[in-house]
């Protein structure tokens, strides 16, 4: 493992099998995460973003591959191989924030109990008063009034519920947080509140985020590096600026051109994506994207593209990446 990295995902595969069909939800995904940064994972629905996130917290057991993690004590572990007991101690350091603040909170528990639950599970011997204290501190940190902690989730609005979810994830003082569409269900003005909160907490607690979202403008705002997924594969990975201004994969280019920009004077050239995302149980041959790619040629349907580095830190999986001149956002134009 490299020195700065806190997490390294190597050749991760996840397959779901039912009766006689195997769906490859995640195929050969590799990337690394440095401590204290935010990684954005984007892609269409059904591309395996959520499955990847769940494999990272080991809510699913990956079928193949490695997830190397540097624990707080400095140990390097392959998280997919450790036993149950060890896993429990590592879980404290990796937490998750869920998409829907309405269904991810138990309606029959008070907010205090919800925030306390991870403590109860991980420190059964901790006295209740101390737990209450920690839960209250955390509630204050995420901007909830501690006086309301005896209420039930139904008494809170969507934005506040998401804050409860964040408090629950943070109460164990984790190092990595996987945010699975954490702001997608919220209104724009509330979204801004939660994004600001996440950024403040990151600075304060030195958190590392893996931010899964389909909203590219949110990802562009919050992420240091971005991974683009298509049909279970990571097709491009790099610094946010590299991905948004100089995409190397045609899918990224098409995705960028589809983002609605909140400026009526900005004229976007939209690159049409033909058809729909293919069935992951029966992916196309060669490059998975060739059925919808406008630059596709003979080779693309035969050869599987290699996941290569093009500039320092900028990876992409496209055979024609070097000859193509793809168009991303022009930052200078957008700010004028």
């Amino acid at each position: 493992m490299e020195k700065d990295n806190i997490l390294e995902v190597k050749h991760l595969h996840k397959r779901f099998t039912s009766k006689n069909v195997t769906v490859k939800a995640v195929t050969d995904v590799s990337f690394s995460v440095r401590e204290g940064e935010t990684i954005g994972i984007v892609g269409e629905s059904g591309c395996g973003k959520t499955t990847l996130g769940r494999c990272i917290v080991r809510a699913y057991d990956a079928s193949e591959g490695e997830v190397m993690y540097r624990t707080e004590a400095g140990e390097e572990l392959d998280f997919l191989k450790v036993d149950k007991k060890k896993m429990k101690s590592i879980r404290k350091e990796i937490q998750m924030i869920f998409q829907d603040p309405y269904s991810s909170l138990d309606p029959r528990m008070t907010v205090l109990d919800i925030i306390k639950e991870p403590l109860k599970a991980n420190f059964p011997k901790m006295p209740t008063s101390e737990m209450d204290q920690m839960a209250k501190e955390m509630a204050e940190k995420v901007g909830l009034n501690p006086a309301y902690l005896m209420r039930y989730p139904h008494a809170f609005s969507g934005g506040q519920r998401q804050r409860i979810g964040i408090a629950r994830a943070l109460v164990l003082k984790p190092k990595i947080i996987v945010c699975d569409e954490a702001v997608s269900a919220l209104d724009v003005s509330i979204q801004a509140q939660v994004i600001n909160l996440l950024k403040d907490l990151q600075k304060e607690m030195k958190l590392t985020y893996i931010f899964i979202s389909h909203d590219l403008s949110v990802v562009e705002h919050i992420s240091d590096r971005v991974g683009v997924m298509y049909l279970g594969k990571m097709v491009e990975y790099g610094e946010t600026e590299q991905i948004f201004t100089r995409p190397k994969h045609p899918y990224t280019e098409a995705l960028m051109s589809a983002v609605p920009v909140a400026d009526p004077n900005y004229i976007q050239e939209r690159i049409p994506l033909m058809g729909e995302i293919p069935n992951p149980a029966n992916p196309p041959s060669g490059c998975y994207f060739h059925t919808r790619c406008r630059y596709c040629d003979q080779k693309c349907s035969e050869l599987t593209p290699e996941y290569k580095q093009f500039e320092p830190g900028h990876f992409a999986a496209c055979i024609r990446a070097e000859e193509l001149k793809l168009k991303g956002f022009d930052y200078s134009e957008m700010n004028s």
Binding site: S189, A192, N196, V218, H221, V261, Y331, M334
Partner: peptide, 24 residues
């Protein structure tokens, strides 16, 4: 103004906080 400010503009400054309308 608040609504416009709370939308992140692509290419905008990263360290800038989004404008958020307090309350609900």
């Amino acid at each position: 103004r608040g609504l416009m400010g709370s939308v992140h503009k692509i290419g905008g400054r990263k360290d800038e906080r989004l404008f958020s309308i307090e309350g609900t």
